[in-house]
Design a protein around this nucleic acid. Structure first.
Lengths: 224, 224, 224, 224
DNA sequence: GATGAATGAGATTTCATTCAT
DNA sequence: CATGAATGAAATCTCATTCAT
């Protein structure tokens, strides 16, 4: 249900409207077009993730799809708008996820573990999108950078709230710098985007567990 | 004394030899040239830090210096070699610093605090270099990427050793995943490169202290 | 039939593969593209012949075609690869021609006359290609210089063989330095590339006849 | 005596006047300057011979001399004027040489042998100059191209005269196409510039002898 | 006599984008 | 739906030349 909603939403986004084709007119066509559109954006994400936005050319994207450069413009209006879409998909879900975590309640410790897992999960489900968002969002044009920055800040704010509530509840130590704890957790987890690869050596759930423990208890012996 | 050594070394690096000019032949001229060279590389670092390597043009660098584009090539052989030099200066010092920390001895806690400070300090002394290193080192040509990767790995290895020794000594809890602790600390600290600005709100020493405490004791109340 | 074979072959050469475009997929498109490609290379040959490889700019080539400079790169990957193709077409045919001459048999005199004509004919059919080959082949990158050098040497070797066989048969005087005779003939004929122009004053067949006579009988009166 | 005259002449040529320095004012200085000047032009000739005029850079010349690019301009006014001087030295002597040959008299055969030797000798004494003249004279600016073209044409004309006189005298066969014989001889000899190297395998005198014999008697058996 | 530091014009190449078909 | 052929602007780099010192 949620997926469907998401899919429908896509047809009303700036992304779609900015491509210069007439919208398809039957449900079947719509469906087919959307599938192809997703492939195109997938390819863009993969290429951007590998070479960086400026280091990647539209030809790289086209090559990966086995089509010609110009054909891409049937699906997006510009390279920049493709980045926009990729970054959009990159942030997507983080906010929703943390909101779910907070809604579920539980103690600070439980919530933090869930938050860490929520933050790392996209590294398995849409790693290229996340990487591009993390590395190349600064190359977006002002308008969409702001939109995406807003989502980012909202997410950080919810995370920080999680810490703050934990302190108030006495789950976390008094005097904890919640802003810094948030930034530390984000830094730690985001860094994983550059070295974690699915199925290589470590499971994401174990990774999340380790990170959470570290944040919660630190490294010192007396904490054990 | 150490500074002088470093300066001399600079004239024997590939970086200098890769520029198109013949080396100057008197001490005074050498000194003058080196100063100008440093200005050029500084400008490159600043521009790369702002726009990313691929997003920055050599014209941007020249403009920042008030000279013409082509004149840059009196100082470096290619845009890529400028990136090389910037990244080189970006890693420079990290290894030396951690070695000093380890040499000084002390308990795991003391060493970790020092290590965190050592890692963050360059954000004050040469922020652009560090940022470029962190973001754009992947755009280096193989040869120098390897050279720089080697320094990186050495650094990480020394850090991990710090944790490992701490565990053995009983300073850190048994069973600590030292590799992960290293990566977590690096992620946390490196992320600061993207939001910390000297003199804005927080002092670097305070930041280092907070990070160190977080790593050591975590967030949980019982640790306080 | 042979022409067709040659045309097909062209689509399997490095030259075509080195251009940036994907190969077209229908016979008609292939044909159209090839025609245009030939025009492009023709223009390059003409410009190189006039100004020399280094003296000619890609803009000169584009201007001659009435297109923009960058558009050339739709057809070739680099100026150098255009030179390669031009030189390739410049040597093409010489070996085949001399082989035909030798296959046809006849006395040394007959064969030499035919060989001279074979060598001069390209000055009518593809003069710019030959001139570029003669003057600018040294500017080719190693790889193709070797390939073309091989064809050259094979050609010279066949020519020298013609002389040698003639001496053995008694058609040419004993003690003739066949290597030198070869080089002399080549020098004489190749020089014509710089002053012979079709339709101006002298017919190529007459020129070939005169050269052949000179080589065979020399200038001295008793030979008449 | 003749050398001195030549040297003095040099101080009155356009070449010297075109350099932008004040002329040296004492005999010793003049001598020293002239020696250095010759070295500079020698280097230019060597570099042009190796890479062609357009393929060579002033830096190549400076490097070969161990000086800086800009320093060249103390000796010549422009790269083009250096080419001019090199080409000038390249043609120099041919006319004088053939005039000497003609003045000495003798039969057509004797004269032709001498003429061939005269034409080849510069390949030993100033090979780079000759090669540059042969290959790059077309890159000269109109003015000097004309001047040098005049010398060329005069030389060719004298050579052709040698043949013509030989025919009249009955030394050469009646009906000989003297123009073509001239061009053939020039082509043959000039081609040697691209493969003859002093001291490698063949002596220039032997080469001249072989060429002369070929021109005189051809290859056919009955001529022996 | 030569150098060091630049310039400015031009070279080759790349690349996002367009558009008729 | 996609292609083929181009464009135009910009990017990196080269190089002959200048000139104060």
């Amino acid at each position: 249900m949620q997926l469907a909603a998401q899919a429908d939403r896509r047809y009303s986004t700036a992304a779609m409207q900015s491509s210069r084709r007439a919208l398809p007119n039957t449900a079947a066509k719509v469906e087919k077009y959307r599938r192809r559109y997703d492939e195109i954006i997938d390819a863009a994400a993969a290429v951007f993730a590998e070479k960086g936005y400026h280091g990647a050319s539209t030809k790289d994207i086209a090559d990966r799809l086995g089509i010609r450069q110009g054909s891409l413009y049937y699906y997006f209006a510009s390279k920049e708008s493709a980045l926009e879409e990729v970054c959009q998909k990159g942030v997507e879900g983080f906010v929703q996820g943390i909101e779910n975590v907070l809604a579920r309640g539980g103690g600070g410790e439980t919530q933090l573990r869930a938050a860490v897992l929520n933050h790392l999960e996209p590294l398995n489900t849409r790693p290229t999108y996340v990487r591009v968002f993390l590395r190349d969002r600064h190359d977006l044009p002002q308008a969409s950078r702001r939109k995406i920055g807003k989502a980012s800040r909202q997410y950080e704010s919810l995370l920080e709230g999680l810490f703050r509530a934990g302190v108030e509840r006495g789950d976390f130590r008094a005097g904890l710098d919640c802003r810094l704890a948030t930034l530390a957790m984000l830094g730690m987890c985001n860094a994983a985007a550059s070295w974690y690869t699915e199925g290589e050596g470590i499971f994401l759930e174990a990774l999340a567990e380790s990170f959470a423990t570290l944040i919660l208890s630190g490294t010192t012996a007396k904490n054990g």
